[in-house]
């Protein structure tokens, strides 16, 4: 199964909705509207020729400069019989980061989405238990967004102008 076949099959089904098809380092990737994320996942899962039935990874990326589409949720899928990988992204605004959850389709999506929520604050609608997973519950920001600092703010001994802070 070549990337062209996957692409034509997807366009056949979703038409103009899917955009930005490109192939980088041998992997097909495209963008989907955020309302369609579950439909795309379900189609890729159910379709007899595609059979993308292994969810490799879910993560997110923060692009503070893209106003209205600051957060991208990235899905990596794999067809284990033909060993084809696929990536697609959905974009959402940071003001209303609501995205449908994939937990009904993949049990593995549960913690991946919790992690994505923990880091980026993406609100997965319909997730059974969307709470912080790696950070403390009291944390009141989403640390992997670009505007938040990496360093521990309580530290005062590192103030070297050239190297430290």
């Amino acid at each position: 199964m070549t990337n062209e076949q996957i692409q034509s099959r997807l366009i056949e089904k979703f038409g103009e909705a899917l955009t930005n098809f490109e192939e980088s380092y041998g992997m097909l990737s495209f963008h989907a509207p955020k309302e369609l994320n579950l439909k795309v996942l379900q189609f890729l899962y159910d379709d007899e020729t595609l059979q993308f039935r292994f969810l490799t990874d879910i993560t997110a990326v923060h692009y503070p400069d893209q106003v209205g589409a600051e957060l991208a949720v990235v899905y990596h899928l794999q067809n284990l019989t033909t060993r084809t990988r696929l990536r697609f992204k959905i974009f959402t605004s940071v003001a209303s980061p609501q995205v449908f959850t994939a937990t009904r389709l993949y049990a593995s999506a549960n913690w991946m989405e919790r992690e994505t929520y923990d880091f980026f604050g993406i609100d997965f609608v319909g997730h059974p238990n969307l709470i912080r997973i790696l950070n403390v519950d009291e944390m009141d920001y989403f640390p992997l967004r670009k505007e938040f600092p990496l360093e521990d703010q309580t530290r005062v001994d590192k103030d070297d102008d050239m190297f430290g802070r």
Binding site: P143, D152, Q153, R155
Partner: peptide, 12 residues
């Protein structure tokens, strides 16, 4: 001392 992990989540 926190080592290389001077980050928001690690005790220094």
């Amino acid at each position: 001392s926190g080592g290389i992990f001077d980050t928001y989540s690690v005790l220094q």
